[in-house]
Structure formats: structure tokens, C-alpha cells
Deep mutational scan, measured.
Amino acid sequence: TRVETATETAWISLVTALHLVLGLSAVLGLLLLRWQFPAHYRRLRHALW
């Protein structure tokens, strides 16, 4: 049971790290898009909202 718990903890930390990385890359990508294509971003936002 001790090994299982350790594996579970490792998986949880791995998944958390993955989610953090994905979230950060998504935010960075959005910022980059907004910085590179302001007109396109505004049009996209206008279409979405």
C-alpha cells in the first residue's frame, strides 16, 4: 500500500505540473497572438462576444 500511495502522489504531481505547463503555454500563446495580431484579435473577440 505504501508503494501504491507513492505512485499515486507521483501521478498527481505529474498531472498538476502538466496542467500548469499547459495553462501557462495557453496564456503565453494568447498574449503572443494579441501582441502580434491586434486587429485580428479584436475582430476575433468581437465575433466571440
Rank of each mutant, 00 (worst) to 15 (best):
T1W: 12
T1D: 07
T1V: 10
T1N: 08
R2L: 12
R2Y: 12
V3F: 08
V3P: 01
V3R: 00
V3G: 01
V3T: 01
E4D: 08
E4R: 09
T5S: 01
T5R: 02
A6Y: 08
A6R: 11
A6N: 10
A6T: 14
A6S: 11
E8P: 12
E8R: 03
E8W: 00
E8D: 14
T9G: 12
T9W: 13
A10E: 10
A10C: 02
W11I: 10
I12Y: 11
I12Q: 15
I12V: 11
S13I: 11
L14H: 06
L14Q: 03
L14S: 02
L14T: 05
V15W: 07
V15P: 00
T16R: 04
T16E: 00
T16F: 15
A17H: 01
L18Q: 04
L18I: 07
L18H: 04
H19R: 01
H19N: 04
H19K: 04
H19W: 05
L20I: 12
V21H: 00
V21A: 09
V21I: 14
L22Y: 00
G23E: 05
G23F: 14
G23Q: 04
G23D: 03
L24N: 00
L24Q: 12
S25A: 12
S25T: 12
S25G: 06
S25Q: 08
S25C: 15
A26N: 02
A26F: 15
A26Q: 00
V27I: 14
V27T: 09
V27N: 04
L28N: 03
G29R: 01
G29P: 05
G29S: 13
G29N: 03
G29H: 00
L30T: 08
L31M: 10
L31G: 05
L32Y: 04
L33V: 08
L33E: 00
L33N: 00
L33Q: 04
R34L: 06
R34P: 02
R34G: 06
R34H: 06
R34E: 04
R34N: 05
R34Q: 02
W35C: 13
W35Q: 15
W35Y: 15
W35N: 15
Q36W: 13
Q36H: 15
Q36V: 15
Q36K: 11
F37E: 03
P38Y: 10
P38K: 14
P38F: 08
A39Y: 13
A39V: 14
H40M: 10
H40R: 10
H40V: 07
Y41S: 08
Y41V: 14
R42E: 09
R43P: 05
R43K: 11
R43N: 09
R43Q: 08
R43G: 07
R43E: 06
L44Y: 06
L44I: 12
R45W: 04
R45N: 00
H46K: 06
H46M: 09
H46R: 07
A47E: 05
A47G: 07
A47I: 07
L48G: 02
W49E: 00
W49K: 03
